[in-house]
Design a protein around this nucleic acid. Structure first.
Lengths: 114, 114
DNA sequence: TGTTTATATAACTAATAAGTTTTAGAATGT
DNA sequence: ACATTCTAAAACTTATTAGTTATATAAACA
């Protein structure tokens, strides 16, 4: 298998985050583990639909799962978000200030020292 | 129009970032503005395909466009990435250390002070 | 004015995604 | 063992996405 530097994982992570339902599920999981039923409750959506969202999150590595009685618990695993944040951080210079000004500065011809 | 707190924008931004071609285009644009042809060159993909990727990036607010002669230049606009990074930052506590340990600590019954 | 250059748009195809309802399965409790 | 509970899987529909080739358009140039 070729090492793509984690690019493939970023596809899955950013893809997972592109859906508001999944982002809401992750937000909920910050409060702690939850059953599928509990996670589905806030949404006007069938249980199988939520199950599929959970599978997407699991495939992106954003949740892990365990059992309690007949229920299945989802747990937040934020590690992949760190990689995503790392990718974004490489653009920090371009948003942290007027980038136009910065670019102009860098592109400017060298000035005479007074 | 209802204010969703920028959630709709996040859909578009994370969705745009989910594609490796588009991430590569953004990376290229850190070096400065570029024509469609220049952006398309590295990819084994037709020019219209790249044009569509650029439209997705534009709709997500990640690039702006201008003209030079018959060519159209794309410019990076990283501002939406700031919002995405802001969303991710709310999960920093959950990745910055073994969250399991942290959670266990918080959930632990108070211990006697020695 | 007509040609060239660079890019966008149109029309199409194939694959993927997100939802539905129905059904199957796995662990618990009686 | 059997019914219950909770969740996953199957089968299907519809919409979106990513790509293709062919064509149209806008600005520059001869």
């Amino acid at each position: 298998m070729v090492d793509d530097g984690g690019e493939a994982r970023l596809d899955a992570v950013f893809g997972a985050l592109a859906d508001p339902t999944r982002r809401a599920i992750l937000r909920r999981l910050k409060e702690g583990e939850a059953t599928v039923a509990a996670l589905a409750a806030p949404f006007a959506m069938s249980q199988p639909a939520v199950s599929r969202h959970l599978r997407v999150l699991e495939e992106a590595g954003l949740i892990t799962r365990s059992r309690r009685a007949t229920a299945r618990l989802s747990h937040l695993d934020a590690a992949p978000l760190r990689a995503a944040a790392g990718w974004l951080a490489e653009y920090r210079d371009y948003w942290s200030e007027s980038h136009d000004r910065l670019a102009a500065l860098l592109a400017a011809p060298p000035t005479d020292r007074p």
